[in-house]
């Protein structure tokens, strides 16, 4: 066992401090040290995206990043996107359009989709498919995920227009 490091993270707006081995992967730090179990472990090789979080404004697969590398970072997980009383538009859209089945990929999928829509607020279907290609779903065949994201994009744009 190596010497533990003092780690500081801001997760979903809350400051967190804990000790962790530098080799510990970010996903395990989130899940084991901080009890944030929304992001999941699917492959540990960056392929499936079940562990996706937003780290310093970028979509990151937390299974292939050491917690030491994340030290000081600002992280948003599915737990920081919407709340039971006020779901994010994407969370509502996934429910409305049957964009999930077993739910295992869903936290990573929605977390990635929030970034995708920030990067490209008005994506075409093709752009959604390309932008979500780092997140694997075994249940839905993606059709309803794509539909959910496109619907959420329209809704977000409509509410932006209404606000202007």
């Amino acid at each position: 066992m190596t010497q533990k490091m003092h780690i500081k993270l801001t997760v979903n707006g809350e400051d967190k401090e804990f000790l962790a081995e530098p080799r510990e992967l970010l996903i395990y730090a989130l899940r084991e040290n901080l009890n944030i179990t929304g992001p999941h472990v699917g492959c540990e090789t960056s392929h499936c995206g079940a562990c996706t979080v937003t780290l310093n404004g970028k979509s990151v697969k937390s299974c292939t990043m050491f917690v030491a590398q994340a030290n000081g970072a600002e992280i948003t997980t599915i737990e920081g996107i919407g709340s039971p009383d006020s779901l994010h538009v994407l969370q509502e859209a996934f429910k409305e359009h049957h964009g999930l089945q077993c739910g295992f990929c869903t936290p990573g999928m929605i977390t990635r989709a929030t970034k995708l829509l920030e990067e490209n607020p008005n994506p075409s279907e093709e752009e959604v498919r390309f932008g979500m290609a780092g997140n694997i779903c075994r249940c839905t065949g993606y059709q309803n995920i794509v539909k959910s994201i496109l619907a959420a994009a329209s809704e977000l744009n409509a509410s932006k227009e209404a606000a202007q």
């Binding site: 899940r31 009890n35 179990t37 929304g38 992001p39 999941h40 472990v41 997980t77 599915i78 737990e79 919407g82 039971p84 779901l87 969370q91 996934f94 429910k95 409305e96 049957h98 999930l100 739910g103 295992f104 869903t106 936290p107 929605i110």
Partner: peptide, 21 residues
């Protein structure tokens, strides 16, 4: 009918075996 399961899954509140401590 919309799924009753989806509220917890979309909010990261599913309870899978690796979530059990």
């Amino acid at each position: 009918r919309k799924r009753v399961e989806d509220a917890r899954f979309t909010q990261g509140k599913g309870n899978y075996v690796d979530d059990i401590k």
